[in-house]
Nucleic acid binder design. Structure first.
Lengths: 187, 187
DNA sequence: AATTTATCTAAGCAATCGCTTAGTTTTGTG
DNA sequence: CACAAAACTAAGCGATTGCTTAGATAAATT
């Protein structure tokens, strides 16, 4: 009935996500997205409505990307040790060659203002809580722990993970390993 | 011989810092600075050279502002307990009414790219290391600790502090307290 | 083959970006 | 008071922002 799309939406979102991850939301212009995604602005707007739409889809794609290490944690079934491995996995996941990109969600939470983009912030907070809940269910594998204590531990671990996202941009590899080691020898 | 400045440079930088803290570097335009600082763009550029200059001076001012709780830590002389108090002090310091602003330095480290603003990044990293060193010298007050261990602990505590800056934007007060309590009951 | 319709390219929209320049006002000095 | 110099206001610079529109192109249906 009409012409076919010459691009695959998932493929171009993958590229957009990479750009947002490396550059941040504001610093990524639609012209940059155009080049990176390899399609015209018209196509971007017709497929994703606006810049925010491209970003929201990028976050969705990020979720599926990070799912590989999340699934690994889910299936590990060895409680706190699995979480420690998740931290190491995250450090690998968040680097691209020598570039430390941090966590896309953490970067965005830090940059985007609640009042400017409430829709985006809601999505980001949901994401953070999914990871936190994953920690909770993993901590429950190491029985004998009280439930209220587990909730506190999950908050604490989530904080360490948020910290690692930033620390990875400032500290060297040894220091990052120090952080993880101290975190888990203390527990 | 000539006309006098009608503004005090420190006063206007204080206002600029507040804007950068609330909005971030990129999202703060020179027009916004103009309004907040209460002076014309010409005056901004003649006093501080450019936008980056205003930002660098804002960071300097931030240092003197945070010095109040840094000095408290320096003089507390009760090692790890002093650091714990510093974390609580930071949470107070970084909020403005109901708004959680995080740490200006942490926000900026997360936003600014090393390659775009190397001069700024150098300053930010220096700042982070000053806090870390403060933790080191405080940990040394609790003797019996090995030096290499203290270095690792300082990295770890610094990570927790970086994390708190972001966590304060996502978590509620109880959760933030959980984080601090778990951190220090584990040590 | 003719028609329809979605997708493409490319030009252009008003608004804003960081920054500069031209020209007026205020001040201290000779 | 006349002059010089710094600080002021305000207009405007080219470049870029997110987004839209006009018109050419391609593919499926009749």
């Amino acid at each position: 009935m009409a012409r076919k799309k010459q691009y695959n939406e998932e493929e171009v979102i993958k590229k957009a996500m990479g750009l947002f991850w490396r550059n941040g939301y504001e610093a990524t212009s639609v012209r940059m997205l155009e080049k990176e995604m390899g399609i015209n602005q018209f196509s971007i707007y017709s497929s994703f409505k606006n810049k925010q739409g491209v970003f929201l889809e990028s976050i969705k794609f990020y979720k599926t990307e990070i799912n590989t290490i999340k699934e690994k944690l889910k299936n590990s079934n060895n409680g706190i040790t699995g979480i420690k491995q998740y931290f190491y996995d995250f450090l690998e996941f968040s680097k691209e060659g020598n570039l430390r990109k941090g966590c896309l969600v953490t970067n965005s939470v830090n940059e985007i203002k609640d009042e400017d983009e409430p829709e985006v912030m809601l999505e980001l907070k949901k994401f953070a809580n999914e990871i936190r809940d994953l920690f909770v269910s993993n901590l429950k594998q190491d029985d004998q722990l009280e439930n209220t204590f587990i909730e506190k531990q999950a908050d604490y671990l989530m904080n360490t993970l948020l910290g690692l996202s930033i620390a990875s941009k400032v500290f060297n590899k040894t220091q990052l390993e120090n952080i993880i080691e101290v975190t888990f020898t203390n527990m």
